[in-house]
């Protein structure tokens, strides 16, 4: 069985907001170490990977590995019924087809109970190899959100170039083009500043609609890390106290 007590429902609400438009149904894999989710979007271009560590919960118990198949739209609706600062308790029995959620109000005696149907999901999981990336960029997550939103007005794709100069985001639309250069900030470390580590010049092109989607996770962390190597998927990572959310995005490559 699973019983997990989260100090604030906000984390789950924000996580669901970050993935619900990318993925329709997914398995939350629960085990004694915590809760993990890995899911690809329908077109198999992007993958989201979530980890919530057992230590991030006020109380956590999971006796044996338990996949909780969830429709993310339904989960989002049920979580909307929780206030951000409610304590959130999720429970599932072994082989159950129901997930129960309890929201305890912080400053009153209000206790709300909801139940959600679980489903069997036959999803492909992928082996993601450990990669030594050629470039790592760490920047304020709000800055990343602004860049991808701004450039998505101009065109469908962004070219990301990491060089000695810094990291440059380039959009070449049909009617307009633009580019944004971020230099490493020497006097300011993350979360406010930008750090760039580079072993090799990197130049990759990605679809902006996915990056705009990933940027929703800025509600979970003030810092985002971009990890890039030529001709491999981009890793966009947001770390927060209880775990992380990571996105992988396949590049666009010339024939």
């Amino acid at each position: 069985m699973l019983e997990a007590r989260l100090a604030e429902a906000a984390i789950l609400k924000r996580l669901l907001d970050s993935i619900k438009e990318l993925v329709t149904d997914a398995n939350f894999e629960c085990n004694e170490e915590g809760i993990n989710l890995q899911a690809m979007d329908n077109s198999h271009v992007a993958l989201v990977s979530v980890k919530l560590s057992a230590s991030g919960f006020k109380k956590y118990r999971c006796d044996r590995p338990l996949p909780l198949g969830v429709n993310l739209g339904s989960f989002t609706k049920v979580l909307k019924c929780a206030k951000d600062d409610d304590v959130c308790i999720i429970k599932a029995a072994d082989d159950a087809d129901i997930l129960s959620l309890t929201y305890e109000a912080r400053n009153s005696d209000r206790i709300a109970e909801y139940e959600m149907k679980l489903m069997d999901i036959d999803a492909d999981t992928l082996n993601i190899p450990d990669t030594d990336y050629d470039a790592r960029v760490s920047m304020p997550s709000a800055e990343f959100t602004r860049i991808v939103r701004d450039l998505s007005q101009l065109g469908e794709s962004v070219r990301i170039e990491v060089s000695k100069e810094g990291v440059r985001f380039i959009s070449d639309g049909e009617a307009a083009n633009g580019n944004i250069l971020l230099r490493q900030t020497d006097d300011d470390a993350p979360p406010e500043g930008v750090t760039i580590e580079m072993n090799q010049h990197v130049n990759l092109t990605f679809s902006l609609k996915y990056l705009v989607n990933f940027a929703k996770s800025s509600t979970l962390s003030n810092v985002v890390q971009l990890m890039l190597s030529n001709d491999v998927p981009l890793l966009v990572s947001y770390d927060f106290n209880q775990g992380h959310i990571r996105y992988y995005l396949a590049p666009k490559i010339g024939d």
């Binding site: 690809m40 077109s43 198999h44 271009v45 992007a46 993958l47 492909d124 999981t125 992928l126 082996n127 993601i128 190899p129 794709s157 092109t205 679809s207 491999v232 998927p233 992988y248 396949a250 590049p251 666009k252 490559i253 010339g254 024939d255």
Partner: peptide
Amino acid sequence: KLKQKSLMSFFGKP
């Protein structure tokens, strides 16, 4: 002309 690659061409199934 660039072509969108699939993640499956980078990451294998376990």
